[in-house]
Simulated scan of single mutants.
Amino acid sequence: MHQNLRETGFRGCTVYDCFGAGQQVAQVTYRGQDWVQAPHTAKQMFEVFPIMRQLHELLWYLTEALELEQTRSLHAALRSARDETDRLTALSPEALLELDIAAHRAEVNVLLLQTSELVRAGVHRQQKGSRGRQKSYDRGADLVGARLKGADLRGAYLRGAYLIAADLSEANLGSADLIGADFRDANLSGADLTGSLFLTQFQINAAKGDASTQLPLTLSRPPHWTA
């Protein structure tokens, strides 16, 4: 069944990624306790999980930011934020439920925005004076079904952009900020996403691509992509 989820109409199940939060909750937070065998833990465990997922997502972004040469001036702050986020993942279920996750995300987001600005500024300096004009979008831009084939989107600000069913084939998304961008059914055939910022497996799994799509080394080519 798991091998045929996409073919049987359960595409959503094939793209979901918990960033390892499920294992953390099951093996660490609840020390291997099974909610099926201990039903009294189920309600609390299900409430803890989305909080843990957010913490693990932040860890993914912070780790990526720390690996960037352009963010050396932020490394101390980024490392501190990552250590604090990692500490929070070890809290008890009760403490996790009391955690103001929105406030913590907001604090981390300040650093992630600074990371984005540093990386994208370098791209824009390289492009300055070139004949091509850098595309600029607002957060959450509506690009549903947009025709962006072959577009130069290097350093573009695409946070939260709705790229559902957009044609991004052969587009260059190097150093583009892609946090929260919705790639459901977007065509990434031949697109270059190496060097893009904050791209996750979850986003890639939701898109369409092929053997010529270039991905960051941290991500895997989804099995449903055409050869």
Score class of each variant (00 low, 15 high):
residue 9 G to L: 09
residue 27 Q to H: 12
residue 30 Y to P: 00
residue 30 Y to M: 11
residue 31 R to F: 11
residue 32 G to S: 07
residue 33 Q to G: 14
residue 35 W to M: 09
residue 39 P to C: 06
residue 47 E to P: 11
residue 53 R to N: 00
residue 54 Q to Y: 01
residue 56 H to S: 13
residue 58 L to S: 15
residue 61 Y to G: 04
residue 62 L to T: 06
residue 63 T to R: 12
residue 63 T to D: 07
residue 69 E to M: 04
residue 71 T to Q: 00
residue 71 T to Y: 05
residue 71 T to L: 07
residue 73 S to V: 01
residue 74 L to C: 02
residue 76 A to S: 08
residue 81 A to T: 03
residue 83 D to S: 08
residue 83 D to G: 07
residue 84 E to H: 14
residue 86 D to K: 06
residue 86 D to F: 09
residue 88 L to M: 09
residue 93 P to K: 02
residue 93 P to Y: 04
residue 95 A to Q: 09
residue 95 A to E: 09
residue 99 L to G: 03
residue 109 N to H: 11
residue 111 L to Y: 09
residue 116 S to F: 06
residue 118 L to V: 07
residue 120 R to F: 03
residue 125 R to T: 03
residue 128 K to P: 00
residue 131 R to T: 02
residue 132 G to A: 14
residue 139 R to I: 12
residue 140 G to M: 11
residue 141 A to F: 06
residue 145 G to S: 06
residue 149 K to F: 09
residue 150 G to M: 12
residue 152 D to Y: 04
residue 156 A to G: 07
residue 156 A to C: 02
residue 158 L to H: 05
residue 159 R to S: 04
residue 160 G to V: 05
residue 161 A to C: 12
residue 161 A to P: 13
residue 180 G to H: 08
residue 180 G to C: 08
residue 186 A to T: 06
residue 189 S to G: 12
residue 193 L to S: 00
residue 193 L to T: 09
residue 194 T to L: 04
residue 194 T to K: 07
residue 196 S to A: 05
residue 199 L to F: 00
residue 200 T to N: 07
residue 204 I to G: 01
residue 205 N to I: 02
residue 208 K to V: 10
residue 208 K to S: 13
residue 210 D to I: 07
residue 212 S to C: 10
residue 212 S to N: 07
residue 214 Q to F: 01
residue 220 S to V: 14
residue 222 P to D: 10
residue 222 P to F: 14
residue 226 T to Y: 05
